[in-house]
Write a protein that binds this DNA or RNA. Sequence first.
DNA 1: TATAGCACTCGAAACCATCGAGTGCTAGGG
DNA 2: CCCTAGCACTCGATGGTTTCGAGTGCTATA
Lengths: 353, 353
Amino acid sequence: MTELGERGETLLKTLIELYITEGQPVGSRTLARHTDLNLSPATIRNVMSDLEDLGLIQSPHTSAGRIPTQQGYRLFVDSLLTIKPLNSEAVENIQSRLTTESDPQALLASVSEVLSKVTHFAGLILIPGRENALLRQIEFLKLSDDRVLTIMITDDGRVQNRVIPTDRPYSESELTQAANYFNGTYVGSSLASVRRALLGEMKTDSDTMHEIMKTAVTVAGKFFDEEENDRDDVVLTGEENLLNIPDLCQIDTLQKLFDAFKTKQDLLDLLDRSMRVNGISIFIGEESGYRALDDVSVVTAPYETDGSIVGTLGVIGPTRMDYEEVIPIVDITARLLSGALSGRHLTESDSSG
Amino acid sequence: MTELGERGETLLKTLIELYITEGQPVGSRTLARHTDLNLSPATIRNVMSDLEDLGLIQSPHTSAGRIPTQQGYRLFVDSLLTIKPLNSEAVENIQSRLTTESDPQALLASVSEVLSKVTHFAGLILIPGRENALLRQIEFLKLSDDRVLTIMITDDGRVQNRVIPTDRPYSESELTQAANYFNGTYVGSSLASVRRALLGEMKTDSDTMHEIMKTAVTVAGKFFDEEENDRDDVVLTGEENLLNIPDLCQIDTLQKLFDAFKTKQDLLDLLDRSMRVNGISIFIGEESGYRALDDVSVVTAPYETDGSIVGTLGVIGPTRMDYEEVIPIVDITARLLSGALSGRHLTESDSSG
DNA sequence: TATAGCACTCGAAACCATCGAGTGCTAGGG
DNA sequence: CCCTAGCACTCGATGGTTTCGAGTGCTATA
């Protein structure tokens, strides 16, 4: 790519900043006024023409000013932006939220909420799957002759319950014994390994198994079979904020967006991809590759527990968002959350219920 | 109110039906064509003028056709509409959903979903509080020195868990004994009475209480203290459907609406009110009394478990919705749900974990 | 009482002129 | 060689005018 020169960079930077705050195409005169280069509009025009040739800016029509292209934004966030000092009120807001909430699931959801409140865009967070969590306890409760309530607790303090339809009635004591057997065998193992073990058990010739074992394997097997069991999930908050944004006033754009919000699959994919990157990811407009997100930008940052990345959080806003403000907010939120999450595991002791 | 006459009623009815399907103000000529009264447009005009004087229809401007007013819709739904025969596909859709889902919480949520799918509007359902549910089992699990995970199971098969911060560390055996004591004392009581009993216990001079009892009362007390514990809740689905609706194309209208969807308080109030009515309730435009709902209509119907009303479900759509189709859908959904909910309680037996 | 006729109203659409912000280009100056 | 001033040009936005047509209200009449 052709070299830009310091002057070109300065002008591109101020042009984008102006466009972000004003929302109007910016012309050569305006740009001249808002820079301390002491250049005439005519000179600015020449530079702008170069910038346009490079594909960094464009004009909506002949006699309008210029607006940044996707590539312009990209260059801007990659090398031009000066991160704004963090709004301390926002930091306190985030911090206080993180310290008051002790239930881990509610904590993660509230992080999404605080992101949307602070940025006035939509906040989102990837809630990690539980394949690596350790089983702390499982319990089978008889609901009726053909339904068993299964409750599983993992060492990260999460509780999951599901009603399992059964082929035959189980007695309560049978279920209790099955749970005891199951707990005795698998407590302390990761859910992934429990799942593997169950698959193996189910293939085993069932004649060699004790009746109680069979019960445990059957019921727990169905429990673990449900896909969603340990799937990653996305919590999205503040979607309604996106309705105020003048850039997104087209109903069908919003429609696409909210449809994607409902299914969440695209969001999940995107967050999942960005989890493998170390540090902030920014997807500008069509960069994300999902149609529904063509007209927005997504800023994400991974968060960790005890040093390893477990999930991602972020913000969805208009492509014309104030990156210099949003980026540090997302960044600090991820850091604060990582801090709050560390040392949150259950005691490692036995788990007799 | 002045008598309308059969001819006036017929004309009002067809006018509203036309407006509902076409979305355009309907003029005298169109109305003349769509009725079998063999009247000339001029005559129709006279009648329309009367209807306008009665406040049932209005014209957006001098040379446009007429559209129904809120009062017009009201009269229409109260005494004019001919309920369409139910779309059998929709019924099967609802029915199959109700029979496949066995987890009661998921069942209620899926009803909201199916309502939105079938009507292409937003579905909503009031999920009843649990004050009348019976305690089946409670369990305390130590997470760390200052956090205890509390899990409560009720006879309707619902599981609720919450992390309780504690003042001092409790040992695991202490917590197990406390849970045993608590279960021994309160299993089978309604949550309302457990709450009352706990309030009493907490006032009692704690010197007279065994240490284990104190533990149980303290931890469970905090659990029951959280307001949301047994609050009614609203599940709302298919909000994004409302974005396609041409009548609701104004961003600020949508904004108001989605803000209300977020807080849910107004929806909860409305559903709560309509729960006290026996049968279908219809709130047209401003009738509901909530600003956010000024531009939409809400159709609701209560549903029951074993003969007594426990909640409400419904649909939110544009004021210009096809009431003749939506009303029976809401009605039949409520009936099917009531049927599916009856006989769903847990077995009444003991609850040794 | 219903109808036919007619003048009238008013929004929608098409058309036009004007205005002004902004551009590209070129010639000239440091 | 880079910068600047000047100038003609473009094109959307704005606002006024006209036309068109759907629909109305009124009145006379069968």
